[in-house]
């Protein structure tokens, strides 16, 4: 029994990272994926913040799922989300001041991320606490991974550096640190993952999540 549970939890994490990746497969929460990904550091920090909020919100919603009246569930989810976002916001403001100056606005905007409300509504409010925890962990990790990947390419091409360290001496491609380049990077990476999915796993791309 416990063995079975562990496998399904592992699958929940994998599901969040690959099959239902927030950005590349579900195509939601694209605003942060373009706004903060012009450097790996910012992308990583926001990804960690979202990972934490996602996991805690999923757990909290799952704990209280029997007490939340279905008719007012959305406002209550929002209250839970904003509570956890406030925790992250205050912790970051206290301990990571330099980074907070840059991405503070986007930390507060996590409240409005579609991905977090979607996981709470679709999964956490219908499942057991343990499963909801691992689902939140998975989809948070997927988001973190996507953000790091996008910002890796954008910072490398747009500034010739990674995590603030200068690497490439060639003339950088300015467009990739501008918002237009963010759209390009997200679109190209999405197309790349769809291509891998279709070519090697027989899937249908982002249109229909594949069954592996």
């Amino acid at each position: 029994m416990s063995n079975e549970d562990r496998i399904s939890n592992w699958q929940l994490i994998k599901n969040g990272i690959f099959k239902e990746n927030t950005i590349f497969r579900l195509v939601i929460s694209l605003c942060p994926s373009i706004a903060v990904t012009n450097s790996v550091k910012n992308g990583f920090l926001l990804g960690v913040a979202v990972l934490f909020v996602q996991t805690m919100v999923n757990t909290t919603v799952a704990i209280f799922r029997k007490f939340i009246h279905p008719k007012i569930r959305i406002p209550i989810f929002m209250l839970i989300i904003s509570g956890w976002v406030t925790v992250v916001d205050m912790v970051m403001a206290a301990y990571a001041r330099a980074a907070y100056k840059e991405i503070g606005l986007y930390i507060q905007i996590i409240v409005a991320f579609a991905s977090i409300l979607a996981r709470a509504e679709m999964f956490a409010s219908k499942n057991r606490v343990c499963n909801a925890f691992f689902d939140g962990l998975g989809s948070g990790l997927g988001f973190l991974l996507a953000l790091v990947l996008i910002s890796f390419f954008r910072e490398l091409l747009g500034r010739g550096s990674l995590w603030g360290f200068h690497i490439v001496q060639a003339k950088p491609m300015l467009i990739f640190i501008l918002p237009a380049g963010g759209f390009l990077a997200v679109g190209l990476l999405m197309a790349f993952f769809n291509w891998i999915d279709m070519r090697f796993y027989g899937g249908k791309g982002a249109g229909g999540a594949s069954g592996h």
Partner: peptide, 8 residues
């Protein structure tokens, strides 16, 4: 447009 924005 791409090259104009990239290498103005």
């Amino acid at each position: 447009a791409f090259v104009l924005i990239t290498w103005p």
